[in-house]
Write a protein that binds this DNA or RNA. Structure first.
Lengths: 335, 335
DNA sequence: TTGTACGCGTTATCAC
DNA sequence: GTGATAACGCGTACAA
């Protein structure tokens, strides 16, 4: 049926080792034989069986990628970067979707391991002890996205969320805002959520602005949650002059709620986001936000993995990519 | 290092065949021995090596998925469905992103083949002779998404784009619209684009409405293109009362252009879309559109593949999933 | 430079 | 019910 190395060898009147040598050019082969083998390969349409190869080499040319939600706008763009660079280096990606469930994540982590993946890129929303435990006993390279995981001795690629949030808050303050709500992505184990909060708090403190607990909301990346959070502010009549959502999607939720309650954005309330997903500039008003180099995050992550696989020494344990505040139409000065 | 079946056998004082039998319970094993083996497996943390297994079984538990753009809102949701159901049946997916380039597609098609995938799900925007040629000589199951490919004898899962476009056009007409622009996704090889056009034309003809060539635009799923197309209508002063974009993204482009030119949507111009991606209800005005069961499309596709892999006979060559017109705020009656 | 033979970790076919 | 042993397709010492 399918042609194997043996068939090629026979047809070319050489041994399988010779064939093996020409396809991998691992050892010198006389030009004449080389050509002959090549021709037979051409004729038969032979392609090496990667499974057999994996078995003996203990390599799979596979990289596992674990994400909490493929259809998330941010994540799918990261995936784009991972996939493209991966293919460039002849690596395929094995995709695992966890829906943010720790159990699934751990299951996939083990699954990937047993599938002989050569590296793992993990994008998780929460970082737990269980992760740490798993990661610590792995011999294959692992890279985390979206969070400084150096405390776990895991390489990571991310922007500086703390600084980004700081800059955005400062930007808001400079525009004259004093009551600034923060709709953030989580607490405790939630990755960048805590960093972002710190950045926000730092800016507020620097300007001696009061952090009103009623204006700090925890939403797990859910647009609906952001909507509800703002609705609560409306109901309690504590609507601020500015809302900083640490995710563009949540910013949309906030704006929609505002609009539905008769507020105008940005005339009555300024709203800013974080990430700069595609829709940030499609939505109206166009969203002022912190741009992350989303594609690049994925691209860098897989480059690091591949370098590690090849045994290159990686000095940094954390790759911090640049971010940028992009001013658009959802925020105004009220000075 | 890693524990193999041999280690387990030795430690449990049985032969590897016996171990194999208990992990696959392929043949009866005495209860006593079974327990013993199970315990050793537990102790050692042994997991069968799927690569070795693949080699002998000639099965990889891998399904290749080829898409034109991972970060496309529609596609990533389809991927969600594919991944989830796949994992349920213990299949992993090998992801390939083509950026819509035929060359890449063909390359990946062959790559996947050599990676021993057991099936391929292909989502392409254009369908060419080259595809047909490749598909026709494959022995592994292939299913196409988003297009009736029965002419190529390929199973496909999709909604009825023709009917969907027909219903939407009819809906618009019933609302009193007569000048209805169509921003569609392509011509010739472009999959559902031609079906959608037919549906549109059918409705227009049924009502004896004139199809104004100046109002028919071809855009390859590009929001910017839709924006420009509408801008052209504005410039030429041929703005219709309704615009039907065959993709939600293109509808956003159309609306944004309208707004930027001082038109109100839907008061001045009604705009409707197609697909009902997440953002259709986030964007304001919320988009009236044709809802596709996006997740289900992916789910059904992979179910079909798996059934085929298992040798089950699939009667239908085309799976048509239901669609639904969802009325929201971007369209009004002008009667 | 080339060929032989073994091993990678399993499953499956035989015997026992 | 259990245990050798031959595949599966390939890479690679080791010999020649």
């Amino acid at each position: 049926m399918t042609v194997t190395i043996k068939d090629v060898a026979k047809k070319a009147n050489v041994s399988i080792s010779t064939v093996s040598r020409v396809i991998n050019d691992s050892k010198p082969v006389s030009d004449e034989i080389k050509q002959r083998v090549l021709r037979v390969i051409e004729e038969t349409g032979y392609t090496p069986n990667p499974v057999a190869r994996s078995l003996v080499m203990k390599k799979s040319q596979l990289i596992g990628v674990i994400v909490p939600d493929i259809s998330n706008f941010f994540i799918s763009e990261v995936l784009n970067g991972i996939e493209e660079i991966g293919k460039m280096y002849n690596y395929d990606i094995l995709l695992c979707n966890t829906y943010g469930e720790l159990k699934q994540e751990l299951r996939y982590l083990n699954l990937l391991k047993s599938k002989q993946v050569e590296g793992i890129i993990s994008m998780t929303w929460e970082l737990r002890e269980e992760h740490k435990e798993f990661f610590s006993k792995q011999d294959i390279p692992i890279v985390m996205i979206n969070r400084d995981a150096s405390e776990f001795d895991i390489t990571s690629v991310s922007i500086d969320h703390r600084q980004g949030a700081y800059e955005m808050t400062k930007y808001l303050i400079d525009k004259g805002h004093k009551k600034i709500a923060l709709i953030r992505s989580g607490t405790e184990n939630y990755l960048f959520g805590v960093d972002q909060y710190e950045g926000y708090a730092k800016a507020m403190n620097e300007y001696n602005l009061n952090i009103d607990k009623k204006l700090i909301k925890n939403c797990q990346f859910k647009l609906e949650c952001a909507y509800d959070a703002v609705q609560e502010m409306v109901d309690k009549k504590v609507v601020p002059t500015a809302i900083f959502a640490t995710t563009d999607s949540m910013a949309f939720g906030a704006i929609n709620c505002l609009i539905d309650n008769g507020y105008r954005v940005p005339e009555d309330v300024s709203v800013v986001g974080f990430n700069d997903i595609k829709f940030a500039s499609i939505y109206r008003p166009q969203l002022t936000t912190i741009r992350q180099p989303i594609y690049d995050i994925g691209a860098v992550a897989i480059r690091v993995i591949i370098k590690k696989i090849k045994g290159e020494e990686i000095k940094e344990n954390i790759f911090t990519l640049p971010h940028e505040l992009v001013e658009r139409d959802s925020c105004i000065s009220i000075k």
